[in-house]
Amino acid sequence: MIANLELVIDICLLAFLIMIVFASIKITDLFAVTMLFGIFSFVSALLFLDLDAVDVAFTEAAVGAGFTTVLMLSALRLTTRFENVKHRHSLLGLPIVILTGAALLYGVADFPNMGDANAPIHHHLAPDFIRLTQQKIDIPNIVTAVLASFRGYDTFGETVVIFSAGAAVLMLLGMGHVERKQEPEKNLILWVVVKPMIALILIFGLYVQFHGDFGAGGGFQAGVIFASGFILYSLVFGETYARKVIPATILPRLSALGVLIYGVTGLMSLISNKPFLDYNALSSNPVGGQHLGILLVEAGVGLAVFSTILLIYYSFSGREVIHYE
């Protein structure tokens, strides 16, 4: 009956998602829509979990439901809260969407049934990944193995993507000024509860970073979680104090350092004339080399993601609101 339970949960979650998005279309209060989007991300994370994608669920929850929602709220604070319904272009939207949807449905018709173990994708590369991870890399989390070793070049690109997003936001918004000698609003309950929470969050972040090989986790999730601890501190205790703990000026450099750690680890193999990112060359024992490579590379990712996420948050929260009318 386990398979059936998964299917039931799957259908329920999908139904939730449809309702949430439908509501988002109708509602014009952007604050409500943002919160709905946060719920949307979270329910998708649950759906990912139901579909056996634990690492993805983890990342979606941390990044989508966590960071993106905070970011959107920060942006809302700096912009307008309500949408002007009269300016909707439904006439343009519906035909395009119906056409695209029809094309997609047409395309999906030939897909193998969901969950079918005989589908082509389960027989070509997947068995090799599973087998080779046990033989050559020897870590339990296959997704981390594929991410950091087999397709490490993609992950390098991904690290650069997050780095470039940080650079882009910095170019657009700067690091913000927090000269206001503002004492944080005294809220005893929040203060007492949040302090130990932050400690736990930071420890959890470190745990996720280093246990990404053995369970769900890895550099990305760890970086976001670790940054969340600081963001929480900033939200409750005020920016001024947060920026004293981690000044905004070192964050871009940390981000660059993360990218460099990744790149230099990859370049190490070039010394023994092995290809870029070939971890076997990092140690006399290939499996040990793989472990070392994955450790270094995930550290680079974690550092880059942490600093960039925090940097982007600072850019938004440190920006002064400009009032019109």
Partner: peptide
């Protein structure tokens, strides 16, 4: 993710 899932 849906097409990566295997029943059971």
């Amino acid at each position: 993710i849906t097409f990566g899932k295997i029943t059971g």
